[in-house]
Design a protein around this nucleic acid. Structure first.
Lengths: 191, 191, 191, 191
DNA sequence: AATGAATGAGATTTCATTCAT
DNA sequence: CATGAATGAAATCTCATTCAT
């Protein structure tokens, strides 16, 4: 038997790619740098991904999936919609604070022109459970009616912007600021 | 007056750079492509901008300025804050619909790692009048207190997301959708 | 006006590629070496040919055409078929002696798996006038009947082999050897 | 007797290398592909051959030897030279038809620049018995005088070309075509 | 001996920039 | 000023070879 394909190595590569996007912006994401950051030979990247494009697409799907996992965590289920929503919102906010590289990776590449249609479609389809959750609340007259995509972008958009402001050291992640941000989202969508 | 060389050609180049970002994403923005789209020789770009970085930074500042002009248009002044806000919001929304390439150019490059600190600082400073407008409303107890950057990102973030959804053909720019989007922003920030 | 695309430079590149095939065998034909041999920057090759494969295909077609020109030279026309054939044969032999790199280039790449079907088809189609010449002689009962491709390969095959032996210093291009080679071809095809 | 490791595996590898040359040309003969075609791991190739070059040189010598065996088969001995020659010619033609990958492997690599001088010398030396056979016939005034290399290339050259035409589906291996080919060779060399 | 993941030198190709015209 | 062919540093990617298992 040869060395088995190392799950750990794949994770190293993925992590490295995300971290580099956070550090240097993704315009300069170079395969050589990813390899160095992952402490792996350049050629090794191509054992796991046939092209740079494939790496980005695959990684995008993986991270997007992880994000959706965070959102639809069963632990969020609560008696009231407000409570569930709040838990979801906070989970996601905390996730973005903990792994800004992941949030930025998805944000940056979504409109970069580097993702395949297949990947974009995947990203939309995987969000279905989240959309369902929104629709139910709409049916129960708990939040505003209207296209779920608009409702959802009203929630995630400001979170991303706020995280970016924090990363840019323009604002601090104080309780006040986080609460303001949440409160605005809630007021935006509530009936 | 050989200073501004050929204003028309400069505009062609700027337009081309924006349009290409809209068409193919900004990750692969190539000088050769900008030249072709602008119907100009590659070398000509360097008559107007010394480097690609200069082109992007300069164009970013120009477009960002144009956007601020749209926001702080004196025509928006009205008796009530709500009225003024609504006019601003609509102006900006319509601007983004009319020139999505400009909105996306600014959006895409803002966190790309390709802009100089100087440009980033400029972008923040030029927004001062808008922040002032928000602060006044806060002082007059018309909208929520808190960091103006958070308030502002709550307004622009959803607009950008909604425009992107429209461009991606995920939703239609119907009166209902536009009104929903505005209403959510208003509910988000109002006291 | 910029520099005009330099016909001379294209010829330099083509010559260089042929020469390198002769010198180092074509398995090791490297773009960097072609550039160096042509006294041109590596990137310049890509001004003229989009890929290495394109360079090889294009060059192959050009050299093959040149060879056909040598074969169907109007000056060869003579009263007797024997005379015309002898002139053709000698022209081709001398061409191969003068430009062994061209002969070898065509020989080597023809069965290399690097040429596109289109190029292979071109190579066959361009030989039509030569086949016509053979067919006429067959109709006039001057040479053996049978598939022209077989007749033709009986003529060119030995020439190529002989040239290779000369290049490998195994035999000398003496009058005796050349005459023997021609005489065998003639005896092979004559009625 | 761990000398020859696994004879079967070695044959698989050799066959694979030949077959790939036939299928895809020799320019792109890759060790990984040879391994896959031989249904063996890449590393295994290096158990049998220290380098790619060694594989090619060794295989070349082996196949060339096999070819010479075919040519100097004692069964060909007959009363008349013509009969012997005809048997040799047919044996070789049939061998090439049965194992075109072997013929092409030798053909392709002979002038590829990838073989060592030692291998080239071996290839020439092993042909000595064949050259002797030709020389005897010359001494007996049965065939034309002249350098045996030229005589020999007049025989093998057309066979190779004809086989290639058959493989390329340009002609069919009919009795007529084969007979024409042989007849031309005979007329070429006979006194 | 056999495996195939990992390597890294070196190949092809790209693209911002220069410069002769 | 304008051009676009030419450049070459740097990027992506390949592949013969190694080596841990």
């Amino acid at each position: 038997m040869a060395r088995i394909k190392d799950q750990h190595k794949l994770e190293q590569i993925n992590k490295a790619a995300c971290v580099l996007v956070l550090k240097t912006g993704f315009a300069g994401l170079k395969m050589a740098d990813v390899a160095k950051e992952a402490d792996v030979a350049a050629g090794t990247l191509y054992v796991y991904y046939p092209t740079k494009e494939a790496l980005i697409n695959s990684l995008f799907k993986e991270v997007k999936s992880e994000i959706v996992q965070v959102l639809i965590n069963p632990k969020h289920h609560s008696l009231s919609f407000y409570n569930t929503f709040q838990k979801m919102w906070l989970s996601y906010f905390n996730f973005c604070m903990k792994f800004p590289e992941k949030m930025l990776f998805v944000e940056h590449f979504f409109h970069s022109g580097l993702l395949s249609k297949q990947t974009i479609d995947f990203a939309h389809s995987i969000m279905e459970p989240v959309f369902e959750f929104i629709k139910q609340a709409q049916n129960n007259e708990l939040i505003k009616k209207g296209d779920v995509l608009i409702i959802q972008s009203q929630i995630s958009g400001p979170i991303h912007e706020t995280i970016k402001l924090i990363l840019a050291n323009k604002i601090k992640p104080t309780k006040t600021n986080i609460h303001l941000c949440f409160e605005m989202s809630w007021q935006a969508i509530r009936k």
